[in-house]
Structures are given as C-alpha cells and as structure tokens.
Design a protein around this nucleic acid. Structure first.
Lengths: 229, 229
DNA sequence: ACCTGAACACCGTTCAAGT
DNA sequence: ACCTGAACACCGTTCAAGT
C-alpha cells in the first residue's frame, strides 16, 4: 500500500476519470468501489467524501463522456447536416463506450431533468429550431430525434459488443438473419421478410437513414401542423 | 414457516408472476431473492431450479408484461391507426409498470435478439409493411417508431413516478418549466424557449404527436427513397 | 425431479478515528 | 478539510443434503 505512489490529491474529476476507464475496460460490472479504491490507492471513505453514492458516480461518468461527444461538433453548412453530425457523434460515443446506453436510459427514466438529457436535448433542439418549422413542433421533433438516436445506438452497441469478442461480422449477421428466417412464419412474418436485407447493411448508413426519415417527417409535419385527421 | 400454506407447486410462471408483483410494488429494488423466497414460501435453491439467474428472471418478467400489452390490440381501420394503438398500448404498459423502461433498454442493449425486442418489432413492423411504402424502408421506419416509443415512454414514466408520490401535476410542470427557464440563457437557449409550452401539455397527446411525425416521415421518405442529397 | 437452507463471495455504504 | 480502513447490512448464487 505504501509502495503505491499516490499521483496527486484525490478529486471528483480524478475519480470520474478512473470510473470511465474501468467502465470502458470491463463494462458496468467492472466498476465497483473495490476496483476503484485499488486503482486510486485509497479507501472507500475518501471516494464518498467527493461523491455521494455510486449512482451519482455513474451519472457523472455518463455526463463527462457525453459532454465530450457534444463539443466535437463539426460545423455543417445546413441545420440538417449539423443534426446528422451531432447524431453521428453520439452514435460513435455509444459505440466506443457501450456502457453508455443502459446508463443513458437509466438517466432518462430516473431523472430526465438531470444534466445529461438536457445537454443532448439542447444540442439537438438548437438545430431543430433552425430548421424553419413552427415552434410548436420543436419539442416533438427534438424528442423523436433524441429517442431514436439513443435507441438505435444502443442496439448497434449491443451488436458491436458481440462482434468485439472475436466474432466475424459477416458470419454474425448471417447467423442473426438465419435465426430470424427460422422463426415461426405464422407468428413472425415481418422479421422473416426483412431478414434478407439485414444480412448486408452498413450500420452507420442504416442509422443515418433513420435520422433522415425523422427529418423528412419534421419538414412535412411542420408547416401544416398535425397530419392526423 | 410450516404455518404458511403453500398454494401449489412452484413453477416458472408462478415465479415470474410474483416477480412482476414485487416490481410493481417497489420497483427494481423491490425484487430480491430474499423478498421472492418469502413471498413464495421457499428457499433460493427452489427458484434457481426454474430460473437460471436474476437477469433471466427480469427478462421473463419484462417479456410477460409486454406480451400482454401487445395482445390487447384494438383492430383499427387503417395501418396508421393500428400503429397508434400499438404505440399507445406500449406507452400505457410502461406507465403502469415504470420498471419496464430501464429493463427494455437493458434488453435492447444486451441482447436485441432476445424475445422482447423481436416481439415489439414484429408487431409494429407488420403494420409498417401494410402502409404501402417500399420494402427497403420497412426496417428503418420500424426502428424509428420502436425507439421513439421506448424513449418517450421512459421519459413519461419518470415524470409520472414523481407525480405518483403525492406531487401535484400542475405544480410539478410549473417547477420543471421554471427550472428550465432559469438555465443559463447563453448555454441553454433552446430549453428556455420551449419551457413555456412544456408547462401545459397532455402527455398522451404529446406522445402521439411524435408517432405522427414519424409516420409523416415514412410516408414522404417512402416513395422517393432517401431525402438526403 | 424438485426442493431445503446454510454457507460463500461480493457488494455499497457508514463512521469513528486519524491528519 | 480531507482521508483511513475496519465493520455492517445486504445481495446473488452455490451445493450438499433431503424427499
């Protein structure tokens, strides 16, 4: 214990930084107060002096990574392109840090007024408000975009996690498609029908197609108000 | 212990049923093997005979509730109306069982090829394929709808959970809107601008507006292919 | 085949005590 | 003000033993 050199004074930032490293290395089960104290060469009490509990620590780790992903915004020519860039930035952040997706969902479902969700809503919402559609559609449009980004990125992260563990991508997609094709035709006609096209698709391309679909909806639903009869 | 009447033989269904009841009563922290064995008047070993581990139990509980929500489909006149009905059914299931939303996100991000996600994709996707848009847009369209449903419902469930604990709805919305209005105008111009309209809105109405927005996008993006230049 | 229940390894958190 | 580290309550899971 005395042999371990203490780098510098403990701080909230250093703790969050270490937490992110542990999460990146081993997922959520990799982050415990035991592993954290070992890495920081302290006791649990020291961490509790800077952080209220584990939930707050996870929230802070999530917030830190998301903030980083949102600041690297490529300035696009159009609001649409900027929205695509922000969406892709979040998509890639979740791909790099797969533990983010359950965590984002937890933040969303536990305290949507926390710091992470507002940050993302603000970033997307600013571009939505620049699209030139009526203000009363801004919130709905932003919601649709943000929720789609979270969900699609989560699903993609799950795939790449499997792929990360030494599985061939083509083989994985083939296996998944085959599994879908072997579903009961009476019960799962839809999944069977799209199994073929799932076999060879580009994840990023597919993701952006969804963003574009929602952008198209915003453009058409905007001027005319609701499309519902 | 001997005083407790054992209702009938233990089974996977009885265990899942008890798990749902515990989750409904106290959320995810309400379900432990201690509370479960007490409720079922057995030991942990008995439960492990029917269920592999806690993760599988949570997945089974989620699957059971979702299956119930999907079978109560109102047969609508148009595919659009049926999609709205399915969406609203899921929305209300998540509202009734708030523990569903983190759980659905977890299922999605851990094993999208599990039983819950395919079930929902199938139900929505069947209606999407009946919309008359080209087949190569089906998957994207279904993804956008499903992810939006999950995300928006999660956010709504978080709100109603706060409201459930004896907080007045109007007061809550006012407090949230006020909090948004007090954000740094330089950093959060968008959230500030929509704070007013958040003050009085109907949750279900708002949710369906998002579904309609995506439906509009499907209709317009469908025939012409991608809208991206 | 199905169930019992003590035991195990591990976890988040607390707190009196130090500096 | 900040840190130490033993201790506590609780958790999921196992397994030899029963029926």
């Amino acid at each position: 214990m005395a042999s371990r050199t203490r780098a510098e004074a403990l701080s909230r930032e250093r703790i969050v930084e270490a937490a992110v490293a542990l999460l990146d290395a081993d997922g959520e089960r990799g982050l415990t107060f035991r592993t954290l104290t070992e890495r920081l060469a302290t006791g649990p009490g020291a961490i509790y002096w800077h952080v209220a509990n584990k939930g707050e620590l996870l929230a802070a780790a999530t917030d830190s990574v998301i903030a980083g992903a949102l600041t690297t915004e490529a300035v696009g020519s159009s609001p649409e392109d900027e929205i695509r860039a922000v969406a892709l930035g979040l998509f890639e952040a979740i791909e790099r840090h797969p533990w983010l997706s359950p965590q984002l969902a937890l933040q969303l479902s536990r305290s949507p007024w926390g710091s992470v969700t507002p940050r993302i809503f603000e970033s997307v919402g600013q571009r939505v408000s620049a699209l030139g559609v009526p203000q009363d559609t801004w919130f709905t449009a932003t919601s649709a975009l943000v929720h789609y980004i979270f969900g699609a990125a989560a699903q993609n992260a799950a795939n790449s996690r499997v792929l990360g563990s030494g599985v061939d991508r083509a083989e994985f997609l083939r296996a998944a498609a085959n599994a879908w094709e072997e579903l009961d035709p009476g019960e799962y006609p839809f999944l069977r029908s799209i199994a073929g096209e799932a076999r060879d698709h580009d994840d990023r391309e597919q993701f952006l197609a969804g963003v574009d679909l929602i952008l198209a909806g915003i453009a058409v639903a905007g001027p005319g108000g609701s499309t519902r009869p």
